[in-house]
């Protein structure tokens, strides 16, 4: 299977910021997912355009990790969200 170049958040996925993290809601799948504050921070940072390096640097600062670990954390998050349908491959990717 070809690996996508970019992922995006489908229209039927929305979210709510809560004190304890971030709640993802899927309007077609009738399901939810709670993201912890750490994962929620990653999701929130994805919603704003920043160079990837800066994003990873911010994640490393927020989570108190080395850059490599932050990059791995970001990858893990993306993989899990892609697998569960919270993100989908961009068209043409």
């Amino acid at each position: 299977m070809k690996k996508p170049k970019a992922l995006r958040c489908p229209e039927h996925i929305s979210w709510i910021v809560d004190c304890g993290g971030l709640l993802l809601l899927d309007f077609t799948g009738n399901r939810t997912k709670i993201l912890s504050c750490s994962e929620g921070a990653v999701w929130d940072l994805l919603t704003r355009n920043r160079p990837e390096k800066l994003r990873i640097f911010m994640i490393s600062v927020i989570l108190g990790m080395e850059m490599d670990d932050a990059a791995a954390f970001l990858s893990d998050c993306l993989e899990s969200w892609l697998r569960d349908g919270w993100l989908i491959p961009c068209e043409g990717a």
Partner: peptide
Amino acid sequence: RLRHVPFAVPVPGRLALSPQAAAS
């Protein structure tokens, strides 16, 4: 309080996708 912002994110080079995930 619902939010939706259309955003896209490049897939990092290290992202190892299972076949099911890639066919998301």
